[in-house]
């Protein structure tokens, strides 16, 4: 069964600074191998805290189907 919900989506321009990781209250986002931030769609509730904190403004909140 899949669920449609708001989640954070990181664009390819991510600079991997980790501001999102430090802000997320659910530990749903983390910097992956120093390359970019990766979102755990099952944990993310789309609260947009990471979007506000992102200095590069590369995070958006979008509706996505989560399994």
């Amino acid at each position: 069964m899949s669920l449609l919900k708001n989640v954070a989506v990181v664009s390819k321009e991510c600079v991997a600074c980790g501001c999102c990781e430090n802000t997320c209250p659910l530990n749903a986002i983390s910097v992956f191998k120093g390359l970019y931030a990766k979102v755990d769609l099952n944990k993310c509730v789309g609260c947009a805290k990471c979007q506000k904190a992102c200095p590069a403004s590369v995070i958006s909140i979008e509706k996505k189907e989560v399994i």
């Binding site: 600079v15 991997a16 403004s57």
Partner: peptide
């Protein structure tokens, strides 16, 4: 801009990435 805007173009950050 945003508080940690420096992190976007910090040379050390760019280099380590």
């Amino acid at each position: 801009f945003k508080p940690r805007s420096w992190c976007v173009y910090c040379p050390m950050g760019t280099m380590t990435q």
